[in-house]
């Protein structure tokens, strides 16, 4: 089970509302390389992993991704909160406002809703761990794209932290892959 902790992983601050940036950042909430995809991908894969290490890594990184989803949600919320309707229209966020007002929704930057097809699970631990390593690199790349899209140093701080975490997760998945490969080799020998 999970227990809620009434805090964000890191402080989230914005210099001023910026609905246009909110429209871009929301992709890391409900886009293909976003934090919902990441959390669900890892937590869903745990069941068919062969080793305690792999199950642990997927559980713990999957849980951290849930915390990142909350960080991204807060960032989007603060970027929209207090923005006048004229600014929302000017940022072409009217397409979001029409269906959702200022509430959050799992969409990518173009407004396309989240789908389970963003996530894969083959049941083959080697293939699945490679999938995760690729996912971490893609998420890192998207955070770098987002950093290029804002001038707000506070927003950049949050995006930089999240980008760094993808690099650490990539590293841990790489170590897990080597360990699982070793486990599979030994199983074949005996």
């Amino acid at each position: 089970m999970w227990v809620y902790e009434k805090k964000l992983q890191i402080p989230v601050r914005v210099s001023a509302p910026d609905p246009r940036m909110a429209k871009y950042v929301i992709s890391q909430y409900g886009g293909p390389e976003g934090e919902l995809s990441a959390a669900l991908r890892y937590l869903n894969m745990r069941y068919t992993m062969p080793t305690g290490k792999a199950k642990g890594v997927l559980t713990d990184i999957g849980t951290e991704e849930l915390a990142h989803m909350e960080v991204v949600a807060t960032l989007v919320y603060k970027l929209i909160d207090g923005a006048p309707i004229e600014a929302i229209k000017a940022a072409d966020l009217g397409t979001h406002y029409a269906d959702h007002d200022r509430s959050l929704y799992w969409v990518n930057a173009a407004g396309v809703p989240w789908v389970a097809a963003y996530v894969s699970a083959t049941g083959d631990p080697i293939a699945d761990l490679h999938e995760n390593m690729a996912a971490e690199q893609k998420a890192r790349a998207v955070y770098e794209n987002l950093i290029h899209l804002t001038d707000d140093p506070l927003v950049k701080d949050v995006l930089r932290f999240l980008r760094e975490r993808e690099i650490v997760h990539f590293q841990r998945f790489g170590e897990t892959l080597m360990d699982v490969e070793e486990y599979c080799r030994q199983k074949k020998v005996f």
Binding site: K53, G56, D60, E64, V168, R172, T176, D179
Partner: peptide
């Protein structure tokens, strides 16, 4: 958190 993830693989 960081130590937890590190210890998972070490």
């Amino acid at each position: 958190t960081e130590l937890n993830l590190y210890l998972d693989t070490h």
